[in-house]
Amino acid sequence: MLTIFNLHARVDDKEILRGVNLKINAGEVHAIMGPNGSGKSTLAGVLAGRDAFDVTEGDVLFDGKNLLEMDPEERAREGVFLAFQYPVEIPGVSNTYFLRAGVNAIRKHRGQEELDAMDFLKLVKQKLKVLHIEEDLLKRPVNEGFSGGEKKRNEIFQMAVLEPKLCILDETDSGLDIDALRTVSDGVNALRSKERGMLVITHYQRLLEYIKPDKVHVLYEGRIVKSGGPELAKELEHKGYGWVEEGLKEPAGA
């Protein structure tokens, strides 16, 4: 579903990603862990089409299409969803209006009929119920005045409504208390399916107790330096990122 090949990206003059390789098949959940500054959010941003990053080398194929050539809205319409680390407040726009505009843009792209207000309301109310989120969320302006936990829940809610093929979660767990963390991970788990791929970016192993990944990768200085199963996350938790750094300093073949 997603193939990242030798991806290099920079911000201004600073090279952040230095050759990332990653392949995610439909149905798989991949976790990317790494210390601050390792390039986790840059990777998420590049995949979603944030224009602050300059891709200098490499390719990203999504369902066989060149993802890097698409505008952010095209990527979303093709089925890429980024749950933001810092969701943006949009005063004056209600969550309902915002989300309906998104859903209908995506439906139009897929050749489906646009949803009218009634059908849309039916859809979102059903999703809210599954995620145990209060209905007043719909009327509130997008993320305005939301607590950190509410913002992250809203991201998962949007994800549930838009039903993307590839979900990218950028540190969705950061700053969440245990209740919010449960809501978020329940929401993510409810979306796991054979057709859907997931890329879970996190700083902490804690989230991975709730969302069991198929594969864990360690991103360090812009490269994936270690890959393994869920046990790798546990090992990192015990030994810390210093362990990865140590490993890299050892001479080749040691």
């Binding site: 979603a48 089409g49 944030r50 224009d51 505008d71 952010p72 809205e73 990527r75 979303a76 319409r77 969803f81 980024l82 933001f84 969701p87 943006v88 949009i90 726009v93 915002f98 989300l99 505009a101 998104g102 859903v103 843009a105 995506i106 792209h109 949007q158 838009l162």
Partner: peptide, 18 residues
């Protein structure tokens, strides 16, 4: 804000008007 709207599938011009 523009990027956020676009990342949900809303086209650039629509996002601006919104």
């Amino acid at each position: 804000g523009l990027f956020y709207l676009r990342s949900r599938g809303i086209g650039l011009e629509d996002a601006r008007h919104l």
